[in-house]
Write a protein that binds this DNA or RNA. Sequence first.
DNA 1: GATAATATTGAGAATAATTCTCATTTATAT
DNA 2: ATATAAATGAGAATTATTCTCAATATTATC
Lengths: 141, 141
Amino acid sequence: MDAHGRVKSHGYRMTRQRRAVIEVFAEHPGRPLNPADVHLLASEKMPDIGLATVYRALELLCELDVVRRVHLHEEAQHYELNTGEHRHHLVCVSCRGVFPYRGCDLEELEERVRGESDFQVISHCLSIFGYCGECLASAKA
Amino acid sequence: MDAHGRVKSHGYRMTRQRRAVIEVFAEHPGRPLNPADVHLLASEKMPDIGLATVYRALELLCELDVVRRVHLHEEAQHYELNTGEHRHHLVCVSCRGVFPYRGCDLEELEERVRGESDFQVISHCLSIFGYCGECLASAKA
DNA sequence: GATAATATTGAGAATAATTCTCATTTATAT
DNA sequence: ATATAAATGAGAATTATTCTCAATATTATC
């Protein structure tokens, strides 16, 4: 189901503000956005949208799994559209760029956890820090 | 080198406050501590230790790799002694307990990253959320 | 052990992200 | 079109963390 459907089917209203926030994500793939980014971009569509509303929309959209929280270890939280694919992020410590990492095997992780402890996995978070290709290249030059 | 040596060898002073913070970690293995926890526990040894000092000590000890930051996705950061072993954490969403996870193969991760993108890994952070054995057992009962 | 130089500290102010409050507005079922 | 309840905007409140700066304590040197 799409974002609109997910909001409505859970009994929430599809407000102009929520639509604007969803659109902002759709129109800005690439680096995950923080609440201030989303607020700024959404303001172009809805000049009066409040920051608190953006926070509330992000919380709701996370709950509905329309967007996902991304942990970049910066001051603010970041968010990106949930593409459905299982993925994590490569974060360049030089240019702060964020790139997808698809090499995490969920079943393998769950099996390893089971193998060493009595723990039932619900979710996990992996962030990988280092240098991206572009920064590596410019360092060599 | 031990904590004391690492502080001194980098030209920092071994103050009573820093010693107290280090001792607190040594005396409280188990759940990682947040700055407020450390401040409270250190206050038992040094009643006048300030919270800002605890923050500064934690920052320094992280830099020296005496302690490591642990990302539990709670409001505050958490810290634990660096045992030297490569490990991550299993976080119980029910009792908030934190348990070590040693199943992460660093070389394998680096190889997988290299396999799918031009990125040089420096560090990574993995947190696994779910139900611990004790909470699973009490849920069944 | 005393002294001087300077790193460190304590206290509280400052900052910044996030959440809360509440009167007003708006989406939607009817 | 209307009623109802959900959602919003604005700013206050909260909370973790950092900063400032005068006072203090560590340590190298004598």
